[in-house]
Design a protein around this nucleic acid. Structure first.
Length: 573
RNA sequence: UGGGGUAUAGCCAAGUGGUAAGGCAGCGGGUUUUGGUCUCGCCAUCCCAGGUUCGAAUCCUGGUACCCCAGCCA
């Protein structure tokens, strides 16, 4: 019996319940035949880092909307216009992550760099129209000339350069005659615009750097604002969905497309990026965590990166469901972790097999059970889904139970084992605690118990007596020893660093607890990397896909089960 | 009186002049061989103040709070 780890649904099987403002706009546009009735979207990551769950929101939106249309057209476009920041390494990880989420771009894989030739021609067209000029101001001067939020900028002395001279200079920029920073091509718009993006923005800069895709072919590279809108137009994108901070860029996006003769004029629509509490989402901060070794890498199971979340054991279905639940708006919000956790619990509840594992073992000897006897007890893999089958679990005189399931002096409402108290061992027998054995330090090392043979399989005995607690357990001579890693939130503050301190000061020192002597039932012997299980009464766990080996299994805790006892205890303090 | 945005429950989010969906969290009940699951119930008059209207979360006026913008980054 294998735990289910494959994707069982694909996004096309689901229809999003979301009726967000973007879908409404698109539905209306389709009705009025606005972009020729076509809907074409794109997901345009810059290959300069790993994707995180915030990107998943955008991926699900763009690919999700496309999937709802007959054409199903969504491009995966690497926005690679800055060779000093980007790397091929990231391209592969991004493709892996998008695929893992369940989306397929088919033939529509592109790079902005695919368009460098066309972009260059558009730039020349702009120059010829007198709408762009080569500026020789230094970066510092450009900044001075730009003005401030309240004061208008002033024109560059090069603003009225002749078309012929601009053409010549631009050609020589391209030919590599000039050093970086000496010249820049600027759009000629309005230095007095209240929108700083319109104050003659740079559209081409010199970078004597090879590009990961085009090699040494270019030493001038187009800027985002020039590249993005034209790339959208070249691909025939109908709706260009981006995050809120690009709102101020929309007038420039439209200016470029209105000024130049392009195949079409895509519509930019902005939505709020995702923010999750108790974590950070910016590439810079995530990178800092990796570089300073606060985590083991980009795929550390505590990271909000898609590779980390995947390694942790989250399913793509749960992530898609999460993206559906949080909605799409223009409001800056912070989503509670609990929403994500509920999504994965709901998904895993239905599809994981149940097994028993004791994380912090406490030895139990059943004194009235024959020393040489071993029984095989039948235990279903799922409480309500019989199709998952069952397995045999051994029962013997010496067992392990969870340390937390025994209290020498039980508090009120504690339904588990205590001296003189009887509990059920799940699918096993009722046992009663007869004695507590301690070591020289007073630590409890063993429990002496008796069992009731009439309760085999955990069933209620003929006299009908009830017990309040059911414990999970394993037979000591038959266990597999494994390592289990328990994760908690990465940060202690809901919004790390929001109080003005370094976000790293909010790091949770207890975000990972490694348990190396966990005792698992023998059916887990052949557990494979990536497989997910519910350890009964504890949570959902996934065999780690990096460090786990046959004979030396390592499990990651994906998420705990809801725990109303923990809630009661916490409430009492 | 620089420009651009956003305000509906603890957290998200529908609502588009006709009397506040849904989810998460929380609280209470039932079922239960996981203190799990499942199930039933409870939980808001919409940032503030005026106005228009038979009727306003939706329209108007005036405020307030918060977010984004001065890279040759994306």
């Amino acid at each position: 019996m294998k735990a289910q780890s494959a994707n069982t649904t694909t996004p096309s099987d689901e229809s999003s319940l979301q009726n967000n403002f973007i879908r409404q706009i698109i539905a209306e546009d389709v009705k009025t035949n606005k972009h020729g009735g076509k809907v074409v979207t794109r997901f345009p990551p810059e290959p300069n880092g790993y994707l995180h769950i915030g990107h998943a929101k955008s991926i699900c939106l763009n690919f999700g909307i496309a999937a709802e249309q007959a054409g199903r057209q969504c491009y995966l476009r690497f926005d690679d216009t800055n060779p000093s920041k980007e790397d091929l390494e990231y391209v592969e990880s991004i493709k892996t992550d998008v695929h893992w989420l369940g989306y397929d771009w088919g033939e529509r894989l592109r790079h902005s760099s695919d368009y460098f030739e066309q972009l260059h021609e558009y730039a020349i067209a702009l120059i010829k129209m007198g709408k762009a000029y080569v500026c020789s101001l230094t970066p510092e001067q450009i900044k001075e000339y730009r003005g401030t939020l309240r004061e208008p900028g002033k024109n560059s002395p090069d603003r009225e350069r002749s078309v012929a001279e601009n053409l010549d200079l631009f050609e020589r920029m391209k030919a590599g005659e000039f050093a970086e920073g000496t010249y820049v091509l600027r759009a000629k718009i309005d230095m007095a615009s209240p929108n700083l993006n319109m104050r003659d923005p740079a559209i081409y800069r010199i970078k004597h750097l090879p590009h990961q895709m085009t090699g040494d072919k270019w030493c001038i590279y187009p800027m985002y604002d020039f590249t993005h809108c034209l790339s959208d137009a070249i691909e025939g994108i109908s709706h260009s969905l981006c995050t809120l901070e690009f709102e101020d860029h929309r007038p420039l996006y439209d200016w470029v497309l209105d000024t130049l003769n392009t195949p079409c004029h895509p519509q930019q629509i902005e939505f709020a990026r995702l923010s999750l509490n108790y974590t950070v989402m910016s590439k810079r901060k995530l990178q800092e965590l990796v570089e300073n070794q606060h985590v083991s890498g980009w795929d550390d199971p505590r990271m909000p990166t898609l590779s980390g979340i995947r390694r942790r054991g989250y399913t793509p279905e749960a992530i898609r469901e999460f993206c559906d639940r949080i909605g799409i708006t223009r409001k800056n919000t912070q989503i509670e972790m609990g929403v994500l956790e509920n999504c994965i619990r709901t998904d895993l509840e239905a599809k994981t097999t149940r097994v028993m594992a004791v994380l912090k073992p406490l030895r139990v000897v059943i004194e009235n059970y024959p020393a040489d006897q071993v029984e095989q007890l039948d235990a279903p893999y799922h409480p309500t889904d019989a199709s998952m089958g069952s397995r045999q679990i051994p029962f013997s005189r010496v067992l392990y139970i969870e340390q937390d399931d025994f209290r020498e002096t039980p508090p009120k409402k504690f339904f588990r084992l205590a001296p003189g108290r009887e509990v059920r061992l799940r699918y096993g027998y009722f046992i009663t605690c007869q004695a507590v054995i301690k070591d020289e330090n007073g630590e409890i090392v063993e429990l002496r118990c008796s069992y009731d043979p009439e309760t085999r399989g955990g069933s209620t005995p003929p006299d009908g007596r009830k017990v309040k607690g059911t414990l999970h357990w394993v037979s000591a001579p038959h266990t597999i020893t494994a390592e289990v890693r328990l994760y908690d939130r990465l940060f202690n503050q809901a919004d790390p660093g929001a109080d003005g301190t370094d976000f790293k000061a909010a790091l949770n020192p207890n975000s990972m607890e490694v348990l190396t002597y966990c005792q698992l039932e023998p059916s887990l012997a052949n557990a494979q990397a990536g497989e997910r299980y519910q350890f009964e009464r504890l949570g959902y766990f996934c065999v780690d896909n990096v460090v786990s080996k046959e004979g030396a299994l390592v499990f990651n805790r994906i998420v705990t089960l809801r725990d109303s006892w923990a809630k009661i205890e916490k409430a009492k303090g």
